[in-house]
Design a protein around this nucleic acid. Structure first.
Lengths: 76, 76
DNA sequence: GCCCATTTGTACGTATGTATG
DNA sequence: GCATACATACGTACAAATGGG
Protein backbone atom coordinates (compact mmCIF):
# COMPACT_ATOMS: atom_id res chain seq x y z
CA UNK A 1 0.00 0.00 0.00
CA UNK A 2 2.42 2.63 1.24
CA UNK A 3 5.97 2.67 0.02
CA UNK A 4 8.37 4.17 2.57
CA UNK A 5 11.27 4.08 0.14
CA UNK A 6 9.62 5.71 -2.86
CA UNK A 7 10.11 9.33 -3.92
CA UNK A 8 6.59 10.31 -2.88
CA UNK A 9 6.30 11.65 0.68
CA UNK A 10 4.37 9.38 3.03
CA UNK A 11 1.81 12.05 3.90
CA UNK A 12 1.09 12.50 0.19
CA UNK A 13 0.77 8.76 -0.33
CA UNK A 14 -1.66 8.52 2.58
CA UNK A 15 -3.72 11.44 1.31
CA UNK A 16 -3.97 9.79 -2.10
CA UNK A 17 -4.93 6.52 -0.49
CA UNK A 18 -7.78 8.10 1.43
CA UNK A 19 -9.01 9.87 -1.68
CA UNK A 20 -9.03 6.52 -3.43
CA UNK A 21 -11.11 5.05 -0.62
CA UNK A 22 -13.55 7.93 -0.94
CA UNK A 23 -13.81 7.58 -4.69
CA UNK A 24 -14.30 3.84 -4.30
CA UNK A 25 -17.28 4.58 -2.07
CA UNK A 26 -15.70 2.90 0.91
CA UNK A 27 -15.66 6.21 2.75
CA UNK A 28 -18.92 8.03 2.22
CA UNK A 29 -19.96 11.69 2.38
CA UNK A 30 -21.22 12.68 5.82
CA UNK A 31 -19.44 9.75 7.40
CA UNK A 32 -16.16 10.00 9.31
CA UNK A 33 -12.90 8.68 8.01
CA UNK A 34 -10.85 6.56 10.44
CA UNK A 35 -9.40 8.52 13.35
CA UNK A 36 -5.84 9.72 13.37
CA UNK A 37 -4.86 6.97 15.81
CA UNK A 38 -6.57 4.38 13.64
CA UNK A 39 -4.80 5.56 10.51
CA UNK A 40 -1.54 5.55 12.41
CA UNK A 41 -2.02 1.92 13.30
CA UNK A 42 -3.44 0.86 9.94
CA UNK A 43 -0.54 2.26 7.97
CA UNK A 44 2.22 2.25 10.54
CA UNK A 45 2.74 5.98 10.38
CA UNK A 46 3.54 8.64 12.94
CA UNK A 47 0.85 10.98 14.21
CA UNK A 48 2.44 13.99 12.58
CA UNK A 49 2.48 12.27 9.22
CA UNK A 50 -1.21 11.40 9.43
CA UNK A 51 -2.10 14.94 10.51
CA UNK A 52 -0.13 16.24 7.56
CA UNK A 53 -2.13 14.01 5.22
CA UNK A 54 -5.43 15.16 6.73
CA UNK A 55 -4.37 18.79 6.38
CA UNK A 56 -3.78 18.13 2.69
CA UNK A 57 -7.24 16.59 2.33
CA UNK A 58 -8.83 19.61 4.03
CA UNK A 59 -6.94 21.94 1.73
CA UNK A 60 -8.11 19.99 -1.28
CA UNK A 61 -11.71 20.02 -0.11
CA UNK A 62 -12.18 16.31 0.50
CA UNK A 63 -12.89 16.35 4.20
CA UNK A 64 -13.95 18.55 7.06
CA UNK A 65 -12.46 18.26 10.54
CA UNK A 66 -14.56 18.60 13.68
CA UNK A 67 -12.37 18.84 16.76
CA UNK A 68 -13.26 16.32 19.44
CA UNK A 69 -15.41 14.30 17.05
CA UNK A 70 -13.70 13.33 13.89
CA UNK A 71 -12.91 14.05 10.27
CA UNK A 72 -15.84 13.83 7.86
CA UNK A 73 -16.06 13.22 4.14
CA UNK A 74 -17.62 16.20 2.38
CA UNK A 75 -20.34 15.83 -0.26
CA UNK A 76 -19.15 16.38 -3.81
CA UNK B 1 13.95 41.33 8.90
CA UNK B 2 16.00 38.28 8.02
CA UNK B 3 18.58 38.41 5.28
CA UNK B 4 19.07 35.04 3.58
CA UNK B 5 21.98 36.33 1.55
CA UNK B 6 24.01 37.95 4.31
CA UNK B 7 27.06 36.46 5.97
CA UNK B 8 25.23 35.79 9.24
CA UNK B 9 23.64 32.32 9.51
CA UNK B 10 19.87 32.36 9.54
CA UNK B 11 19.62 30.62 12.90
CA UNK B 12 21.89 33.30 14.39
CA UNK B 13 19.83 36.07 12.82
CA UNK B 14 16.65 34.56 14.21
CA UNK B 15 18.17 34.15 17.66
CA UNK B 16 19.23 37.80 17.65
CA UNK B 17 15.79 38.83 16.47
CA UNK B 18 14.10 37.04 19.33
CA UNK B 19 16.51 38.54 21.84
CA UNK B 20 15.65 41.94 20.43
CA UNK B 21 11.95 41.21 20.92
CA UNK B 22 12.65 40.19 24.51
CA UNK B 23 14.70 43.29 25.22
CA UNK B 24 12.00 45.42 23.67
CA UNK B 25 9.53 43.95 26.13
CA UNK B 26 7.45 42.40 23.41
CA UNK B 27 8.25 38.95 24.74
CA UNK B 28 8.06 38.94 28.50
CA UNK B 29 9.60 36.75 31.22
CA UNK B 30 7.38 33.85 32.16
CA UNK B 31 5.56 34.10 28.88
CA UNK B 32 6.08 31.82 25.87
CA UNK B 33 7.78 32.90 22.71
CA UNK B 34 6.05 31.97 19.44
CA UNK B 35 6.11 28.24 18.73
CA UNK B 36 8.58 26.65 16.36
CA UNK B 37 5.86 26.26 13.72
CA UNK B 38 4.82 29.87 14.19
CA UNK B 39 8.38 31.12 13.81
CA UNK B 40 8.77 28.92 10.76
CA UNK B 41 5.81 30.61 9.15
CA UNK B 42 6.59 34.12 10.35
CA UNK B 43 10.12 34.08 9.01
CA UNK B 44 9.86 31.51 6.26
CA UNK B 45 12.45 29.22 7.78
CA UNK B 46 12.81 25.47 8.06
CA UNK B 47 11.99 23.69 11.28
CA UNK B 48 15.60 22.69 11.85
CA UNK B 49 16.76 26.26 11.52
CA UNK B 50 14.25 27.50 14.09
CA UNK B 51 15.21 24.70 16.47
CA UNK B 52 18.83 25.66 16.03
CA UNK B 53 18.02 29.25 16.95
CA UNK B 54 16.08 28.17 20.03
CA UNK B 55 18.97 25.94 21.08
CA UNK B 56 21.22 28.98 20.91
CA UNK B 57 18.82 30.98 23.09
CA UNK B 58 18.72 28.18 25.65
CA UNK B 59 22.49 28.02 25.70
CA UNK B 60 22.68 31.75 26.21
CA UNK B 61 20.16 31.65 29.03
CA UNK B 62 17.36 33.60 27.40
CA UNK B 63 14.69 30.96 27.34
CA UNK B 64 13.66 27.64 28.82
CA UNK B 65 12.03 24.90 26.81
CA UNK B 66 9.16 22.83 28.20
CA UNK B 67 8.36 19.87 25.99
CA UNK B 68 4.76 19.71 24.88
CA UNK B 69 4.04 23.21 26.12
CA UNK B 70 6.34 25.79 24.73
CA UNK B 71 9.48 27.85 25.08
CA UNK B 72 9.43 30.43 27.85
CA UNK B 73 11.33 33.64 28.42
CA UNK B 74 13.43 33.42 31.57
CA UNK B 75 13.53 36.24 34.14
CA UNK B 76 16.72 38.27 34.09
C1' DG C 1 -22.13 19.10 37.23
C1' DC C 2 -18.43 15.59 37.01
C1' DC C 3 -15.52 12.10 35.35
C1' DC C 4 -13.75 9.52 31.47
C1' DA C 5 -12.71 7.87 26.86
C1' DT C 6 -12.10 9.43 22.27
C1' DT C 7 -10.46 12.62 18.98
C1' DT C 8 -8.29 16.52 17.09
C1' DG C 9 -4.78 20.44 17.91
C1' DT C 10 -0.40 22.03 19.28
C1' DA C 11 4.35 21.61 20.64
C1' DC C 12 9.11 20.10 21.39
C1' DG C 13 13.00 16.39 20.54
C1' DT C 14 15.42 13.77 17.41
C1' DA C 15 16.93 11.66 13.18
C1' DT C 16 17.74 11.15 8.20
C1' DG C 17 18.38 12.53 3.43
C1' DT C 18 19.46 16.04 0.18
C1' DA C 19 21.46 20.25 -1.55
C1' DT C 20 24.55 24.20 -1.48
C1' DG C 21 28.70 26.96 -0.66
C1' DG D 1 35.15 17.75 4.53
C1' DC D 2 32.16 20.87 6.94
C1' DA D 3 28.47 24.16 8.17
C1' DT D 4 24.18 25.70 6.84
C1' DA D 5 19.55 24.94 5.41
C1' DC D 6 15.40 22.60 3.83
C1' DA D 7 12.02 18.67 3.82
C1' DT D 8 10.40 14.71 5.76
C1' DA D 9 9.36 11.52 9.45
C1' DC D 10 9.04 9.34 13.95
C1' DG D 11 8.35 9.87 18.98
C1' DT D 12 6.44 11.92 22.92
C1' DA D 13 3.84 15.20 25.66
C1' DC D 14 0.33 18.41 26.85
C1' DA D 15 -4.11 20.92 25.60
C1' DA D 16 -8.91 21.43 24.08
C1' DA D 17 -13.39 19.78 22.46
C1' DT D 18 -16.90 16.32 22.29
C1' DG D 19 -20.06 12.86 24.02
C1' DG D 20 -21.57 9.18 27.13
C1' DG D 21 -22.54 7.56 31.65
Amino acid sequence: MIDPDGPVPLYRQLADLIVARIEAGELQPGRPIPSVSRLQQEYGLARGTVLHAVAVLVEEGWVQVVKGRGTYVLPR
